[in-house]
């Protein structure tokens, strides 16, 4: 069990749960993009996600993934802060590392706050509420983006998510020991492409319904 409390063990947990959350993001984005295709298709997909026994089971695995990722992240951050009790009077981290890698806690916590809002307004309404008074899942998705502030909060959150993913995706491979002269530079490029795709993909949906 000492593995899970060791520095590397905790990083492996961060990595595996992070990659699992990324797989969820891909499915989530794929379903959401259907809103741009047709109302019926999205409602059908949404119904499938809400009733399929496999997806329903995976919901709990997903929740566990979130809990592990967040709790380990907080524990690691706490330990990392304790490792340097006295700060530098003059420090230039920008000369040796990227902004997204240095702001994982900040982007992570802000994305988490966004997830709370998002779960309240969507998942809660779809599972336990009355769809916020809207007729179908599609109408709920479209309806909430009438509000410019709501749309802005979403787009901002997606930008923060993209920063989190930019470092997180490729870093997850390094943490489990996947580093190879042939593939690492490809993984880093893929990480950037993927984070832009996710950020732009989700934002596009919000903005499309705000302007239409």
């Amino acid at each position: 069990m000492s593995f899970f409390t060791s520095s590397i063990g905790r990083k492996v947990v961060m990595s595996i749960t992070g990659l699992f959350l990324i797989s969820f993001l891909i499915v989530h984005l794929a379903v959401n993009l259907l809103t741009l295709v047709s109302k019926d298709l999205f409602n059908e997909a949404s119904h499938f996600m809400g009733t399929n026994p496999f997806i329903q089971t995976m919901q709990y695995v997903l929740a566990l993934g979130f809990i592990l990722h967040i709790s380990q992240g907080l524990i690691l951050t706490m330990k990392n802060r304790q490792a340097r009790p006295q700060k530098y009077a003059m420090n230039k981290p920008e000369t040796n590392s990227g902004i997204s890698s240095r702001s994982m806690l900040l982007t992570g916590v802000l994305v988490l706050l966004f997830i709370f809002i998002h779960l309240r307004d969507y998942l809660w309404e779809m599972k336990f509420g009355n769809l916020g008074g809207y007729e179908t899942d599609y109408d709920l998705v479209v309806g909430l983006f009438d509000d410019p502030i709501y749309t802005a909060v979403y787009v901002l959150s997606f930008i923060l998510l993209a920063f989190h993913l930019n470092h997180g995706f490729q870093s997850a491979f390094q943490s489990i020991g996947v580093n190879h002269p042939k593939y690492t530079s490809f993984l880093k490029t893929l990480s950037t492409v993927f984070c832009i795709f996710v950020g732009v993909g989700f934002s596009a949906i919000s903005l499309y319904f705000f302007f239409n």
Binding site: S6, K79, Q82, N96, S97, G98, S101, S171, S175
Partner: peptide, 16 residues
């Protein structure tokens, strides 16, 4: 690694 953790070093976040 066990000794490294005992000494109170932080954890790698792959900033490079």
């Amino acid at each position: 690694v066990e000794q490294m953790d005992k000494e109170g070093f932080g954890n790698c976040t792959n900033t490079g």
